[in-house]
């Protein structure tokens, strides 16, 4: 499959799915905000998905506030939309408003995150699997090293955050049983480029650049920062130290294309595609989807056409 088909199924032109007759569907989308490039891309892709299907998308930016999201959902209910997409900013406190939607017989689909509410209150949740992402990264490295000994340093996400916990656990699962692989240092880089660079500098000093064989970063931003630290230490990123990270932001594709990074696992911004598929199926034929739809955690390596992906993704608002 080409990346276009995966990423923007039906987004560009009239793909087969769009032919389904749902001319007058109106969907409300309550987005958290635009706190990161990925979030902006998610919004862009959702709009594209809706447009391609001829859906009237009502978009509400909550600016990181739950009360704004609740207000938005109530107004969607009042407008009598056909369905609601919700990217919840927090996990708790949704019961009342979800019951209101249920009473109005409007299906709600959660995107990207889940909530602590009864499963019956929403149609389904479309999320990535953070543990799985880490696992894919670990398995890639295990395969890449093929039994050779490798000392790994890890750049964790913000201490205590669920992506940091899950991506760490997933990676450890991925390299389990490969005694040649050893995580020698693990420290938080706060998901930021600058901290990624700072912490990588200290890893290089503490271990000695020659003694580090691979870097696993919980997100691409930290990896991009670390690449600069590695270069400044006189080593060649991607060769002397293998680098694998998660998210597949445009700069990571660029780094892979330049040979400075080896792999990244995509956290797809296309949550809306599967979500709208499920919604349309439910509205037209009453098909109950599974309660959890897991998005694909796709691995990108130098084998892919990273420049093309880079150019494509840059337009999404990353």
């Amino acid at each position: 499959m080409t990346f276009k088909a995966t990423l923007l199924a039906g987004a560009v032109a009239l793909a087969p799915m769009a032919a389904v007759a749902d001319d007058d569907l109106t969907i409300g989308f309550s987005q958290i905000g635009s706190e990161s490039g990925w979030r902006a891309a998610e919004t862009t892709v959702t709009r594209q998905q809706a447009e391609a299907r001829g859906i009237d998308l009502k978009f509400a930016d909550a600016q990181q506030k739950q009360e704004n999201q609740i207000k938005a959902i109530r107004s969607f209910i009042a407008q009598g939309v056909d369905g609601i997409l919700l990217a919840p900013v927090v996990a708790t406190g949704w019961d009342d408003v979800l019951e209101e939607a249920q009473d109005a017989e409007i299906p709600v689909i959660l995107m990207d995150r889940t909530v602590d509410a009864d499963e019956s209150l929403y149609l389904t949740a479309v999320t990535s699997d953070l543990v799985h992402e880490g696992q894919v990264a670990g398995e890639w490295l295990a395969k890449e090293m093929d039994g050779q000994p490798c000392r790994i340093v890890e750049l964790q996400g913000t201490t205590g955050s669920s992506p940091a916990i899950d991506r760490k656990a997933g990676f450890e699962q991925g390299i389990e049983g490969h005694d040649n692989l050893e995580i020698v240092r693990s420290q938080t880089g706060d998901f930021t480029r600058s901290q990624g660079k700072v912490v990588m500098e200290s890893f290089l000093k503490a271990e000695g650049g020659a003694n580090i064989c691979a870097l696993y970063a919980h997100n691409d931003d930290m990896a991009v920062g670390a690449i600069q630290a590695i270069k400044e230490a006189g080593l060649v990123p991607g060769k002397d130290i293998r680098i694998v990270a998660i998210d597949a932001v445009p700069d990571a594709h660029l780094a892979i294309a330049n040979g400075e990074m080896n792999a990244t696992i995509e956290l797809t911004p296309n949550m809306a595609g599967p979500a709208l598929d499920a919604l349309e199926a439910y509205l037209q034929s009453g098909t109950q989807p599974a309660k959890w739809i897991q998005t694909e955690s796709r691995l990108y390596t130098a084998a892919d056409d990273n420049m093309a992906v880079y150019e494509e993704k840059k337009s999404l608002g990353y």
Partner: peptide, 16 residues
């Protein structure tokens, strides 16, 4: 300096 260091301006995190 912080932006130049990482070759990018990170409005969310720079100087946080």
């Amino acid at each position: 300096i912080v932006a130049a260091d990482i070759k990018g301006a990170d409005a969310n995190n720079a100087g946080l």
